[in-house]
Write a protein that binds this DNA or RNA. Structure first.
Length: 907
RNA sequence: GCAGAGGUAACGAAGCGGUCAAACGUGUAAGGCUUAGGACCUUAUGGCUUAGGCCUUCGAGGGUUCAAAUCCCUCCCUCUGCACCA
């Protein structure tokens, strides 16, 4: 009959925790506080165990801190700002079958789906509810009173407005144009997650150089304006559709038909668009705006019209495509020798070399050659004497100056294209829209960066490796577009056409948790900036605030700053950086965040657990089948930022060991022996285990904590019994400590065990973490029991070798003199490991020679002659039982009897 | 491409100058228990070895050191982020 009735146990303690409101925390000046958060969730689908990973890790820390006697606040909010939920709602409204199936698979009824279709918020509220259930099931210790929803909770929107006005007052907000990948059909920006294809592609800026030809302008698009002095001709595709467009300033451009369709997304509308036949201009000349040179306009089929303007400037000596086609043309008509304008010292004939190496037979070959030439020239090229004002500049630095030059000649413009093809989920091809008058947060601010990096150096970051990454992220930070025009969110207070986007309205909301349960009762219109200035920035105002606001201030003052923010590694370069920087920008120094915990993914068979891979398990499934405590094993799957492999096989071993402890708890009264050496051994070990698990918990290295607090702990209890330990007090103490060390990991079953033995208070409710007792530590005893263990191993080995049942086993302990020499050498090793030096301090004999034979294996732990003997004598009965043979323990002067390695004779 | 983090036995993962053939877990194998299977217990799990021994290993190659998985250099491979997107 199984002792581990996990369902009953977990239900029982879940109820107790609920009744006692164990997770609800309020300001209490008498207790030290600890404030921990995990980022808000976007409730657009059911949670699975992969999500659980981060929250369980945070919860373990929260419980650990409670046991250290701290008043712990662990709140959790949701957010519904942004696009995807609105997108899903829209898809449901359009009757998209795939979308409907996704919802149904996650437990939504037809009724629900109808509701979602009209209102994305309904969808969020629906899943939000399931999240609360799932969290409670697993025992995530959240204070739900403080839950709120970004930016659906009206009071919170007031907070965000305050945040943005404050940033604006501090001059951290600017306005400007900004290119984004855009879906022309859905009329919205296309984030990576909204794309059917082309993840990771981004806007790429091309320079447009306006070449005059007749009365027209031939706008050539290029990534390399610095090659302007090397232009030999322009290319136009004689077989493609071109248009002539006129702008309000009177300029007339010749461009591809496709370009005219993209143009409105980035520039002012053309006044007039007419068809244009490229043959009208082929063979005529254009003027290089920088040096006035006349160059021919030539026909080329390779010119693609769906990229850029459809007009290409040709630099044969530095672009393999141009080189290839120009060479061919040269045999048809008379053309000038192209000019070489970039020198690379190590590769004087770079172009020939590239063509030879990659070939010129097809596009692929030419593309590879192009990559090679561009890269080499960019890194090592110098503009030679043919470059007018640019002569002598390294290619790396010439681009900006070339653009200046082109601007001066009134020939500059620019255009954005996607860096690769992007397809929207709706099927439309993505393009670049230049969003105008976009609002930015100035994260590029140098002083702010410096202050932030300074602070990050001082923060507690777990694991340590994450620190460099975060500093790097801040260092490279650019201005962040903070608004968007679609989806859900809080309108920007001074420009209500814009909504504040999700990564910008979620940088300091942790402060809101401290009073979210109080502000909930206020009418949004009662809430104003003055009040937030007073609560959050401690601005002394000539004004008396009502009691509720004083209470909010008190909560904020008590709980803030945030002690630990726990999140997965992919948020480092965006959310985490924004979060720290905004805190530093807005708050006083004593409110800046103190710590971070970063983790990797949860993987199954090496693949990230995610819905799209179909390798997930829902929370309720895991809890119902394996129990909440076992489900929490997830959190100990890894120590740091590396991905953590989740293996259900681990659960069996866990359960079995728990049962062992539960059984021991039940029969605890049957242990009635006196205290012996082996008791001292276990007491000493327990201190070692407490120390190490505490260290591991503090670093959030839960894989290590599990090792110490669980596996090694049980091994030691087993050893204790194996070596003849039989004392009730010792075992009771051991199991009590065991329960407590494991409580953060497995709250329910450990509460049960502790309660059965001690009938005390809840482990969550007072300083229940076991103390380390220095006076119980005894290194030599631990060493001598290692000797015992090692000796038993050796006996096993020998028995395997000789393969017979032993009648008698003689264990010969070395003489006291040998121990003295051994310990002396051990002591000397701390000063010197030079064999010659050690020899000087000893009288040489055979034993000393043997001891010093291998410099790698010098004595390294203290031993004790009396103890070694006693350990074996005390365990004699147990050894006898084990091997079913006569056991003789005696002193031996044989060579084989070594301190820490008794002689073994098997008869 | 740029930036950061990693590569340890069948797998996950500790160790981060000497106690290292390498914790711990999982898997696998043998024996025990059981009518049987599962679960459980014991033992083994780099190679060789009929008395506790020897040899070869910590991505690859060099180097520093009496001593390197651990420190330094070069190379190869994997993961993460690159922003308006949750």
């Amino acid at each position: 009959m199984s002792k581990y009735q996990l369902e009953e146990i977990e239900k029982k303690w879940r109820n107790v925790y609920n009744e006692k409101k164990s997770y609800e925390a309020d300001a209490d000046e008498k207790k030290e506080k600890f404030f921990i958060t995990v980022p808000v969730m976007y409730p657009d689908g059911r949670l699975h165990t992969g999500h659980m990973y981060t929250w369980t890790r945070a919860d373990i820390f929260a419980r650990f801190q409670r046991m250290m006697g701290k008043n712990v606040l662990f709140p959790q909010g949701f957010h519904m700002t942004g696009g995807p939920m609105a997108g899903m709602s829209l898809r449901l409204k359009n009757g998209d079958e795939a979308a409907i199936k996704i919802m149904k698979d996650q437990g939504a009824t037809d009724e629900d789906i109808k509701r979602f279709a009209g209102n994305p918020l309904e969808l969020g509220l629906f899943f939000g509810k399931t999240y609360k259930n799932d969290f409670n099931l697993v025992g995530i210790s959240i204070d739900w009173r403080r839950n709120f929803i970004l930016s659906y909770t009206e009071q919170y929107s007031k907070f965000v407005e305050w945040q943005f006005r404050t940033l604006k007052d501090m001059d951290y907000i600017t306005q400007g144009d900004h290119p984004v990948v855009w879906c022309p059909r859905e009329n919205t920006s296309l984030g990576d997650h909204d794309r059917a294809d082309g993840e990771g592609e981004s806007p790429m800026e091309f320079t447009i150089i306006k070449f005059k030809a007749d009365k027209f302008i031939m706008p050539a698009a290029t990534l390399r304006p610095e090659t302007i002095y090397g232009v030999s001709n322009l290319w136009i595709n004689g077989k493609a559709n071109y248009k002539k467009i006129r702008f309000s300033n009177g300029e007339e451009w010749i461009v591809s038909k496709e370009f005219t369709e993209k143009l409105p997304f980035q520039k002012n509308m053309a006044e007039k668009i007419e068809d244009f036949n490229p043959s009208e201009i082929i063979g005529k000349t254009a003027i290089n705006p920088v040096n006035g040179e006349e160059i021919p306009i030539l026909d080329a089929e390779f010119v693609k019209t769906d990229k850029n303007t459809g007009i290409v400037m040709s630099v044969p000596m530095h672009a393999p495509f141009d080189y290839n086609y120009y060479s061919k043309k040269k045999t048809e008509i008379r053309l000038k020798e192209p000019k070489k304008i970039i020198d690379v010292k190590t590769n004087p004939n770079l172009m020939e070399e590239a063509i030879k190496r990659f070939g010129s037979a097809d596009e692929k070959a030419l593309e590879n050659a192009t990559k090679y030439v561009y890269k080499t020239e960019f890194n090592y090229g110098i503009l030679n004497e043919n470059n007018g004002q640019l002569s002598g500049k390294p290619v790396k630095e010439a681009k900006e100056e070339a653009i200046e030059l082109i601007k001066k000649s009134n020939a500059y413009d620019n255009f954005y294209e996607t860096s690769g093809e992007v397809i929207c989920r709706c099927g439309a091809k993505g393009l670049i829209k230049l969003v105008q008058n976009q609002w930015f947060i100035r994260y590029s601010d140098k002083q702010l960066k410096e202050k932030t990096i300074d602070w990050i150096q001082k923060m507690d970051i777990r694991p340590d490796e994450a620190k460099a990454q975060i500093i790097n992220a801040v260092y490279n930070m650019e201005d962040k577009a903070a608004t968007r025009n679609g989806g859900l969110g809080t309108p920007l207070p001074w420009d209500k056409n814009w909504l504040i986007e999700p990564l910008s309205d979620s940088t300091i909301y942790m402060a809101y948790y401290t009073f979210s349960h109080l502000i909930k009762d206020m009418e949004p219109k009662e809430i104003n900036d003055e009040m937030f200035d007073y609560i959050l920035l401690d601005k002394k105002l000539d004004k008396k605030f009502p009691d509720n606001i004083e209470r909010m201030k008190k909560e904020f003052e008590y709980w803030y700053p945030l002690d630990l923010r726990v999140t997965a590694k992919e948020l480092i370069t965006n959310h985490i950086a924004f979060f720290i920087m905004t805190h530093i920008a807005i708050f006083n120094k004593d409110k800046w965040p103190r710590g971070l915990g970063i983790n990797g993914w949860l993987t199954v068979n090496g693949k990230k657990m995610s819905k799209s891979k179909g390798n997930t398990m829902t929370i309720d499934y895991v809890v119902n089948n394996y129990g909440a405590d076992a489900a929490r094993l997830i959190a100990s799957a890894s120590n740091g930022m590396d991905d953590a492999e989740w293996d259900l096989n681990n659960i069996n071993g866990f359960k079995q060991k728990i049962e062992f402890i539960l059984e021991l708890t039940e029969i605890i009264d049957s242990f009635s022996g006196d205290r012996k050496l082996v008791d001292e051994f276990l007491w000493s070990k327990i201190n070692y285990l407490i120390e190490n698990s505490e260290k591991a918990y503090n670093l959030m290295k839960y894989k290590n904590s599990l090792n110490y607090s669980f596996f090694e702990f049980i091994e030691n209890i087993k050893d204790y019994i194996d070596y003849g330990g039989n004392n009730k007090e010792t075992l009771k103490y051991a199991i009590t400590v065991f329960a407590r060390l494991n409580h953060p990991l497995f709250p329910f079953v450990t509460e049960e065990i502790d309660n059965a033995l001690n009938k005390g208070e809840l482990l969550e409710s007072y300083q229940s973490w076991p103390e380390i007792k220095e006076e119980q530590k005894n290194e030599i005893i631990e060493n001598e029991f290692d000797v015992l263990k090692q000796t038993l191993d050796d006996i096993n080995n020998l028995l395997n070798l000789i393969n017979k049942d032993p009648k008698e086993i003689i264990i010969g302990i070395a003489e006291k003199e040998k121990f003295d020499i051994y310990n002396k050498v051990e002591e000397i090793t701390h000063r010197s490991r030079d064999i010659k030096e050690i020899r000087k301090e000893l009288t040489i004999n055979d034993f000393v020679n043997k001891l010093l034979k291998n410099p790698k294996r010098l004595p390294n732990k203290k031993l004790d002659y009396e103890l070694e003997k006693k350990v074996f004598i005390e365990s004699k009965e147990k050894i006898k039982e084990k091997y079913n043979a006569e056991i003789k323990i005696e002193e031996s002067s044989e060579e084989k009897a070594f301190p820490g390695k008794p002689m073994i004779i098997i008869k």
